[in-house]
Design a protein around this nucleic acid. Structure first.
Lengths: 114, 114
DNA sequence: GTTATCTGTTACATAAAGGATAGTACTTAC
DNA sequence: GTAAGTACTATCCTTTATGTAACAGATAAC
């Protein structure tokens, strides 16, 4: 029983760590939630999320590598790039919803406690 | 409409950031998931989670400040301290479940893709 | 008194993350 | 050719996170 507990803990730990590796950090979930309102350009994302270009570039690459967003180049006058969520990203909906809901209720709790 | 989108994004961003501030980082959710199998002592947690005493001490303090775990001192022969989840911590169940589920399915996806 | 256990803390050091500022490359408008 | 817009990249620096090792206070066993 003790062994079983430890074992299932290990699995839970690993799964949680996996998720946080992909989607943790300061910006990834924020970028995803911003992109939920539609595809966006680089500078647009930078402005809306309040993230510096260097970090944004890195984060977008990582998100793309994990199949959560796609990068499309448009051959417009000044070349344009749009980032958007992939269908796979929708699998994160429960995670996002849970995080958002808890964050909201936790803030309410703190406010009500003074 | 554009305004509305940006506004709701801001709220989502804030809520998500709040949650990650409380429960983000490398260890907090792991410690919580470890404590789910019952109250544990300091060294016990250190061993089971594979976390060094310095970090463990800091993380436990932060979790306690946020009302997610409680610390109880027992007047045993060598003084003993037990940490355990608070009832409030149960409000994180959805978050934990979502993270664990996604981490698991994502791993499966990566494995199946080679 | 020496060793051991339990709970941590302190000091020191490295690693990872994040940020500020400029600059590159291309194109269009003036 | 000068400015401005798009999409980044490069450099440098600060902050945060994490880790290691040693140590301190208390109690008990030997």
């Amino acid at each position: 029983m003790q062994e079983h507990s430890i074992d299932s803990c290990q699995k839970a730990k690993r799964a949680i760590q996996d998720t946080l590796d992909v989607v943790g950090g300061k910006w990834k979930l924020v970028l995803i939630s911003v992109l939920r309102s539609g595809k966006k350009g680089f500078n647009e994302l930078s402005r809306e999320a309040g993230i510096s270009p260097r970090i944004l570039s890195k984060e977008l690459q990582e998100l793309e590598m994990n199949g959560l967003i796609s990068r499309t180049v448009y051959q417009t006058k000044p070349i344009t790039v749009k980032y958007e969520l992939t269908p796979y990203c929708a699998t994160l909906n429960d995670v996002l919803a849970a995080l958002e809901k808890w964050g909201h209720q936790h803030r309410q709790k703190i406010i009500s406690e003074g």
